[in-house]
């Protein structure tokens, strides 16, 4: 250690004690190979045990550690101190969500939305296990693979102004996951999902800001899922209007 320090200004909020969130400043030893999460853990262990935040895998895959870093939603286990040093770094909870405490947000709303898009395989006829797997070619896999990469980190919700203004909006990740199952060659449940995706709270709320795709750490591209769902639903609607019964 060479004595250099990095300064983090962290949002604190303790219900019952703080009326509104406040900012608290901490200095940590500066280490070139530390990510922001390492600095938070250092504070928790050695300076202030009251700081609350979520984390687990520290390898960018569990989706726990999303926070605003200098105003941009990031996985804190995947951004380095050195990208900001020697500037001070502002750490805030993800925006657009209610705050439980400090850097911990309430995301229970997302879990309801996720369930509402029926993120599971729906079949008209089930194949028995003894009959083996459903065949799926690498091309069929690539039709939806990108949209399976979502780690539910909520960065896209923090980046979405529509969600900020309209919390009822299903939002990027939930729509991307609904779309993922619609595109899966094994699935036959598209119709029952379109009702939710195409509802008032669904895809039509989106006005193509595109920030969700920008901030997504896993290259899921929820914006594309939303736009493509719009086209699909419109196509389905035209078909249902134009084609006589039975031919759809």
């Amino acid at each position: 250690m060479n004595g250099a320090t990095a300064t983090l200004n962290i949002t604190r909020y303790l219900p019952g004690q703080d009326q509104i969130p406040r900012s608290q400043s901490y200095s940590v030893p500066y280490q070139r190979d530390w990510v922001i999460l390492d600095a938070l853990n250092y504070i928790k262990d050695h300076i202030d045990g009251t700081l609350s935040y979520r984390w687990s895998c520290r390898m960018g895959v569990c989706g726990s550690c999303g926070m605003m870093v200098n105003g941009v939603p990031k996985l804190t286990c995947a951004v380095f101190l050195r990208d900001f040093y020697p500037q001070e770094i502002r750490i805030e909870p993800l925006v657009n969500f209610p705050i439980i405490r400090d850097l911990v947000i309430d995301m229970s709303d997302f879990l309801d939305k996720l369930k509402s898009v029926k993120p599971w395989i729906i079949r008209k006829t089930e194949k028995q296990i003894s009959e083996g797997e459903y065949l799926q070619t690498p091309e069929e896999l690539s039709a939806y693979q990108q949209f399976t990469q979502c780690i539910n980190c909520m960065l896209c919700y923090a980046a979405c102004p529509v969600y900020g203004m309209e919390p009822e909006f299903l939002g990027p990740a939930a729509i991307a996951l609904g779309y993922r199952y619609n595109q899966d060659s094994r699935d036959q449940g598209k119709e029952s999902r379109q009702a939710v995706l195409g509802s008032h709270e669904g895809i039509w709320q989106c006005t193509f800001v595109g920030e969700c795709t920008e901030v997504c750490p896993k290259e899921v591209d929820p914006a594309a899922a939303i736009q493509r769902s719009k086209v699909e639903i419109t196509k389905d609607w035209f078909k249902s209007v134009l084609l006589p019964w039975g031919q759809r």
Binding site: I121, I129, E133, Q136, T137, L141, T148, R186
Partner: peptide, 22 residues
């Protein structure tokens, strides 16, 4: 084997061979 196939039926995106098998 039955468990892996069960998971396939539940939507796990297994990597595939050109013929469509896991």
């Amino acid at each position: 084997p039955g468990e892996l196939i069960q998971l396939e039926h539940w939507g796990c995106p297994w990597s595939r061979d050109p013929d469509g098998r896991m």
